[in-house]
Amino acid sequence: MSVSVDVCDLSISFGSGATAVKVLPGVSFSVRSGECFGLVGESGSGKSTVLRCVSMLTDFWKGEVMIDGRSVRDLPLIERCRTLQMVFQDPYGSLHPRQSVRTVLNEPLVIHKLGDREERMRRAITDVGLPVSFLDRFPHQLSGGQRQRVAIARALILEPSLLLLDEPTSALDVSVQAEILNLLQRLRAERGFTYIMVTHDLAVVDHMCDRFAVMLRGEVTEILPHEAIATNGATHPYARELIGASLEYEGVR
């Protein structure tokens, strides 16, 4: 139920000719099967771009992304969507305002020609801790936390092995963030998912991830175990600065 991910020399440029901008000069990291791997860095450092490349939402990159030893480019679309799914940052922007939760959850089942739709939808919605009656609600009838749960249910309905989480809680209050983080932890314990999680909050990384990569201007400066945060065990100057700033901000001195 879980897969490993190997990203090798992933690079991408936007634009062409003289105005081309190399966003990722060459990113490499590997995520073990069942691991929660964090990507941190300031805005514009290319964290989300990495996720978009791994998920093939952006597909004109160079390099190699291997999922359980198979290149993500060689996976047929249908199989790829069954293997990996993404949860986006903003629960207010990622759900269609005119589609009910049922429509959102039903569509992937239709595309992938899966049976027992009602049963699968009920399971997905209970898995994320919402009552079954919420299937008939529209996004405006849900709070931010509930919307993010629906977004996670949408990602889960195809039973993927790899979840790409793009700042899943940064639009939410701490109290709601706690609920979503607990949910993600519980799902990982139950199903053995592999997570790649983009965030700018090192406290969340320390709470959730096993290892994390610090990115700066498209490059992975350092890959560290989560224990290195509390002690600031980074060696690269930028990683040290980032962790130091977070520690100072938290008031842990």
Partner: peptide, 19 residues
């Protein structure tokens, strides 16, 4: 409740308290 719901650096990684 708000304070307990916050993940902390060097925390226990136990499920967070929910309000």
């Amino acid at each position: 409740g708000l304070l307990a719901a916050q993940p902390r650096i060097g925390g226990t990684r136990q499920p967070l308290a929910v309000l």
